[in-house]
Design a protein around this nucleic acid. Structure first.
Lengths: 342, 342
DNA sequence: CTGAAAGCGCTAACAC
DNA sequence: GTGTTAGCGCTTTCAG
């Protein structure tokens, strides 16, 4: 494969000149620039980023650490980031980061330590103090999605506020007998989304003077998880509410499937509201709070590239950019028809 | 950051010795090896893969080209490959490859040309002759998932056979009035999955002496896509079949949701079979043919690493490893209850 | 504006 | 077994 020396020889200039011409850094006469570019094209020259980064320290590649690839929110973020990065000429290297484990440590101690990237985006991972230090010590900018990280700009939605908003929507329709079905604190995801959404729910209910004991059912954070809990909760008329705030659209959809299977009409007999803006929301008539994963992804990339451009900002970059959630109405929420419990 | 020279100095040996001790290549006495390793740990030395690959040509990184990140099959493959690669110390760099477009070309001409990886895995992408040449010219092994690529080992299921099997299952239950709902040839995915599954369906139907005109309805290859077609097909009793072979589980689920919404009992009134082995199959009582994305991913990685280990194989590696599909019974298929059309 | 030379961090020959 | 030397492909002083 051709090296810059070949280009230089063909163009009749020195390696240094060819380098300047191709990279755009440093003075080159327009005439020689054209000659060099032509020569490069002729032999199909593509610079070796390895060699370049060895001297510049820049790799034109960014690392992404993420706990899941196949869950909707995460894959959506990933896809949007990939698009944005590719457009800027960056590679994206993926590190699937499990919860605390030897593999997790190896990502930090080995993979990330190799410094093959100019920056890191952490998606939905609450980094430990030690891990943040580790990353900072690499001297590479870091941007987060999903929740606050000390000394790191982060993009997120306000989970407490979103949960409160969703619950208040149901309350405003006249519901009093509302259940929250969401993640278990035990297998909490990072940034405590589960507890935060529960907190927002309780807050709204308390403010409205509603009872909350027995109003929360934990479930696995998936569609089948919601389905299973739905089957058991709806089977007993005594535990059947008039409305449900589900911690995610996937859970909400599982609940709707279970309800329909038991002959409960949604939204007629039961109102359901979720969070995410999942593409399936429409076909299940689900009202939802969009959290715009793609926008979060693009914003994270933009933030990272900005830091890369002017590292000066780094010192004081400790802010959390909170994206507003949008309430998207479909037809799954309506007033209570025949309140059974309140 | 510390370089190997620092380690060498601290251990009181030469750079080369330190390199040998750390990489395990070449003779080093156990005693010095320990000294070097201790020194490396002491200063937290991690080798720069950039510098190493500059001389060895190996990068310990593999590139993945893939058309979608957020569709179930693809994200599942991705996640399994990431796991397998990480375990072997490889980075995974992602290139989201759209259909023919300038961005697609740029992936080949710029990103892949940078040769930042030891090999490439192509997932669900039918590469053009030119693109295959392009990759071969890089001198890096290439492995595919999803369908045959000239001169490249590939892992796939046999789409025609799978479709035939699914259809025959319905036929064996006594159904005659079977519809196929699947992807449109117009926006065909790579490797012609759409047409191949249609072909398998037609073949089984013809063999059983069933009519097939009007038996195929195209739809978008998603859950909402199946839902929309389901609503229109099921609304008219004249077009309502006793059984359906859906080209994917997502389509199948959309169909089931639509059917239920129209008061059609699944599986009582309508049998549905899909392909994929989607995790939601159970909650929708869907019978499906598993195509094991995770196994395909792991196999692709293993194949690539094997080629990396002994490049000799490369010349004659033109085979297609066809993975068997497993019929997974849930409760969505049963004999016809009240055949309307046959 | 361009060229020559040094060197990024590492490994591979080849001496010793 | 270990050290010395050269050089991977590029960018970047620093002269000219």
């Amino acid at each position: 494969m051709s090296a810059i020396a070949d280009v230089a020889r063909l163009a009749g200039v020195a390696k240094a000149t060819a380098s300047r011409a191709l990279s755009g850094r440093g003075y080159v006469s327009e005439e020689t620039r054209l000659k060099v570019v032509a020569a490069a094209r002729e032999i199909g020259y593509v610079a070796s980023p390895n060699a370049a980064s060895l001297v510049t320290g820049r790799t034109k590649s960014i690392g992404v650490i993420i706990p899941f690839i196949s869950r909707w929110f995460f894959s959506e973020v990933l896809e949007s980031m990939e698009e944005a990065l590719l457009a800027e000429g960056y590679d994206m290297t993926l590190y699937n980061l499990p919860a605390a484990s030897p593999e997790r440590d190896s990502v930090f101690e080995y993979f990330l330590a190799r410094k093959r990237f100019d920056g890191v985006i952490s998606v939905g991972v609450a980094l430990s103090e030690g891990e943040v230090d580790h990353l900072h010590r690499l001297g590479r900018p870091l941007v987060g999605i999903g929740g606050p990280i000390r000394g790191v700009p982060t993009i997120a939605i306000d989970d407490v506020a979103a949960a409160r908003l969703a619950t208040e929507h149901l309350l405003s329709l006249g519901h009093r007998d509302i259940l929250h079905i969401g993640g278990n604190q035990a297998d909490e995801m990072d940034f405590k989304v589960h507890s935060q959404r529960l907190t927002g729910f309780y807050a709204a209910m308390h403010d409205a003077g509603c009872r909350t004991d027995g109003a929360f059912y934990p479930c696995e954070f998936t569609m089948p998880g919601g389905y299973r809990v739905g089957l058991s909760v709806f089977a007993d008329p005594r535990t059947r509410p008039t409305a449900i705030f589900a911690a995610s659209d996937e859970i909400a959809i599982g609940l709707i499937v279970a309800a329909r299977e038991l002959g409960i009409q949604v939204p007629a007999d039961l109102s359901v509201i979720g969070i995410d803006g999942h593409p399936y929301a429409d076909m299940f008539r689900l009202t939802t709070l969009e959290q715009h994963p793609r926008r979060q992804g693009r914003l994270a990339v933009a933030t990272l590239l900005a830091e890369l451009a002017s590292p000066a900002i780094r010192e004081e970059s400790d802010h959390l950019t909170v994206l507003p959630t949008n309430l998207v109405f479909r037809s799954s929420t309506s007033g209570p028809r025949s309140p059974l419990g309140g």
